[in-house]
Design a protein around this nucleic acid. Sequence first.
DNA 1: ACGATGATGCACT
DNA 2: GTGCATCATCGTT
Length: 212
Amino acid sequence: MTASRPAERPAPGDEPDVLAAARGLLGAVLHGHGVSVRLTEVEAYAGPDDPASHAYRRTPRSETMFGPAGRLYLYRSYGIHLCANVVTGEPEEGQAVLLRAGEVVAGHDLARARRGGVDDVRLARGPGNLCSALGLVPADLGADLEQDPPPRLEPGTPVDPARVLSGPRVGVSLAADRPWRFWLAGEPTVSAYRRSPRAAAPGSASDPVSRR
DNA sequence: ACGATGATGCACT
DNA sequence: GTGCATCATCGTT
C-alpha cells in the first residue's frame, strides 16, 4: 500500500451540501394540487456515498435524483404510498431531500377529504400522507418545482436556526445513525421516529458510516 | 423468472 | 409498544 491518505471521511464542517439544502427547505411551502403545505420535517439523502439513499446505486427508478436541482423525485413505497423529494445539488451528484411532514396552510377542505377526516395535524404527517394530502400523482415525477404550474415550491421566510433539530433518518437500515433528519422544534405536525428493525444497534461500528 | 426487500401507515395489544 | 398488508423495484438465478 502506498503512503496515501486514509480513506476519506467527511470532516466536521465538511458535510455534504444536501444537509444545508435540507435545513433550507424547512419552512418552505410546497403547493400541490389544490393544497399547500409548509414543510416542518425533511431528510437528506446523498448520492453513491450514502447507503440509505436510492442514489447509492444508479437505477432507472433513481434516475431523477441524478438530474438537475429543483425537480420532483417521486417513488412508491411499499408498493402503495408515494413519497416526494426535492432534487438538490449538481446533476450527477444524486442528492435529494425527502419531504416527511408539513402543515397544511391552504386547501384544508380538499386535504381533509383526501385524508379521510383525520385530525388536522395529521393531514401531512409522514411522507406518504404528505403526498396524499397534496394530491401528488406519479405523473408529477420530474416536475420542475420552480416553474409555474403546481407542484411548485415557494421558499419560505428563513427559520431561526435554533429551531432546527436533527436526528437519525426514519426507517433506514443502513447508515442508520447519520443524523440527517431535520425538523422544526415544537411543530405538532412532525412525524414520530422509528428505527428500522434491520438497522445495526445504535452506535454500532458495523454500520458502514455510523455517526458524524 | 424468482425472491427479498423496503426512505410506510395503520390497526391492534 | 408490536404486527403486518401489499407490490414496485432490483439483484440474483
